[in-house]
Write a protein that binds this DNA or RNA. Structure first.
Lengths: 189, 189
DNA sequence: GGGCACATGTAAGCTGTTACATGATTAA
DNA sequence: TTAATCATGTAACAGCTTACATGTGCCC
């Protein structure tokens, strides 16, 4: 754990191209957003700390009151070191699964709604991944990074498709178990 | 967010059957573990708070120094209320994807290892889900809960299978991009 | 001149993890 | 008898989120 996590994301983003702290916020949100998030309150402190240690260098302002940060040699080395560290799986906390697991208390109908919603979300994500894929094909600036970026897009696509299949199966299953548990009192009134 | 999360998990577990705080720890780890986690440091305080509010009742000790907690009527109502609240998606933090995204810095070979490891993990999880499924088929005590529990097992299976497929594709892709970027200096020595 | 996007930070507060402290019971 | 498991808690700390404070430049 440690705040290595933030450090890695910040150094990584700067390894693609130098940018301001603000641009870092936006990049992490828009580009890494499918699998990563940083609370913005951490980015500036992390950047300051990295500067203090000589991992990044603050370059003159593109305009007053702003500065662009670039990786130093030591910063690039540190990034490689961080990336080589073992992946620390964050403990799972899936609110949807928690609700389904206690679905007997929640009721089959409410479960159905939740699953439908999850299906919509997954479908929306899938479309987005396809859009990103197309966008990447046209982007010649990052040809060296692209193959790696596509791996993460592919992971998103696989996950989203699995979620859709699961949701469809689950809705069918809920239709079967639903009536018998949820509304036993008004069967054929 | 709020500690509603812990409250929901604790009340939910107690809705299945009354148990001690210790059993709660074990149950949450072993039964909900596929999609949920609670830090144990929170369980006892949450339990104390729930007792104070009359959501759970502490029943005589099964043995000295221990007490069994059971849901009260108000506790069951509270659980339903909590389950009906919108799912709050926790911000994603996938360390594997972060490493792959910056795979150019890490190197294709190291990426390959990470993906292989992920494949092993997914295969192991898949086997575990199948074991849980079989175990559930034999368990007559929780017939009413079972259909809902199976939904979460199914989700795990779909996710794990998707991860395996993705990993296989990804390893193939890395084999293609790997050599040309990673070891250009010693091509055909 | 008004609003929006760019830009940099700080502080309070909540959440969650980890390690510790303590003791009873049971099985080898 | 000693190790493992059952059992209940507390305290310190690390990490993250949210809201706030402040200011510039650009476009309509």
């Amino acid at each position: 754990m440690r705040k290595n996590q933030t450090e890695t994301a910040v150094l990584g983003a700067l390894s693609v191209e130098p940018m301001t702290g603000y641009a870092l916020r936006v990049t992490i949100r828009d580009v890494l957003g499918h699998f990563w998030s940083e609370s913005f309150g951490q980015i500036y402190p992390a950047l300051a700390e990295l500067e203090r240690r000589g991992r990044v260098k603050r370059r003159g302002s593109s305009r007053p009151g702003s500065s662009t940060f670039a990786l130093t040699g030591s910063g690039r080395a540190r990034l490689k070191e961080l990336l080589a560290q073992p992946v620390h799986a964050s403990p799972p906390r899936n609110g949807l699964m928690l609700r389904l697991f206690f679905g007997r208390q929640l009721g089959a109908e409410a479960c159905r709604s939740l699953v439908l919603e999850a299906r919509h979300d997954a479908a929306r994500r899938l479309k987005k991944y396809e859009a990103i894929r197309e966008e990447l094909e046209l982007d010649d600036d990052h040809a060296k990074d692209r193959p790696f970026w596509l791996l993460t897009v592919s992971a998103g696509e696989h996950t989203a498709r699995a979620a859709i299949t699961w949701a469809d199966e689950t809705i069918a299953a809920l239709d079967e178990i639903g009536p018998s548990i949820d509304a036993p009192k008004q069967r054929r009134r």
